Amino acid sequence: MKIAQVTLRHMKMDLLYPFTTSFGTEYDRDFILVEAKSEDGLTGWAESVAMPTPYYNEETVKTNWHILEDFLLPLLLNKDFNHPDELTENLFSHIRSNYMAKACLEMAAWDLYAKQQNAPLARLLGGTKDKIDVGVSIGIKDSIDETLEVIEKRRSEGYKRFKLKIKPGWDVELIDKVRKVFPDIPLMADANSAYTLADIELLAALDDYNLMMIEQPLAHNDIIDHADLQARLKTPVCLDESIHSLEDARKALKLESCKIINIKVGRVGGLTQAKRIHDFCLERNVPLWCGGMLESGIGRAHNIALTTLPGFRLPGDTAGSSLYFAEDIIHPEVTVADGMITVPTSPGIGYEADLEKIAKYTLFSKTYRKC
Rank of each mutant, 00 (worst) to 15 (best):
C371V: 05
V34E: 01
L33F: 04
L309N: 03
E152C: 03
F31K: 00
S245G: 06
L124Q: 02
D145W: 13
V178H: 10
E26T: 00
T307P: 12
L229I: 01
C104V: 04
M11K: 06
K37M: 08
A194S: 13
F71M: 08
K141R: 13
S22L: 07
H226A: 02
P186A: 10
L239E: 03
F92S: 12
L174T: 08
K254D: 15
K167N: 02
T362E: 13
C258E: 06
A101F: 11
K160N: 05
I243K: 11
H244F: 09
L73G: 06
M340W: 08
E59G: 08
G269F: 07
Y113S: 01
S137Y: 00
L187N: 08
E333Y: 12
E201A: 11
E59T: 05
L323W: 10
V61I: 00
I349E: 15
N64R: 08
L218A: 01
V6R: 05
T63M: 15
A359V: 10
Y56I: 12
L125A: 06
I260F: 09
L15N: 04
W45M: 11
D225R: 03
R300D: 12
Y56D: 03
G139V: 07
C238L: 08
G316M: 02
D142R: 09
V6T: 06
R123C: 01
D208M: 01
K129I: 05
E247I: 12
K254I: 13
I175G: 04
C258K: 09
P74V: 09
V334I: 15
P344G: 14
R161I: 05
A191S: 09
V268C: 14
G158Y: 07
L306K: 13
P344Q: 13
N57K: 00
A36E: 05
G269M: 10
E247P: 01
W170V: 03
I330H: 02
G269Q: 02
L233Y: 01
A305S: 14
I341V: 14
T7E: 06
L174S: 00
F182M: 14
E58L: 07
L246W: 14
I95V: 15
L75P: 07
L125M: 01
I261C: 10
I95Q: 07
T7S: 14
V172F: 02
S346K: 15
Y351C: 12
A326G: 02
I144W: 04
G350D: 13
A359M: 10
E26Y: 06
K234D: 06
G316K: 03
L187F: 14
F71A: 12
A274S: 15
K357R: 15
P332S: 12
P287A: 12
N262R: 09
V286K: 04
S365A: 11
M107H: 03
D85I: 02
C290K: 13
P52L: 04
I260P: 04
D28S: 13
R300W: 10
S38E: 02
L68H: 03
E201N: 10
D176F: 09
E35C: 00
V237A: 03
L124C: 08
R267P: 13
S93M: 10
L271E: 01
D207E: 02
Y27R: 04
T308G: 11
N262H: 11
H244W: 06
A101G: 04
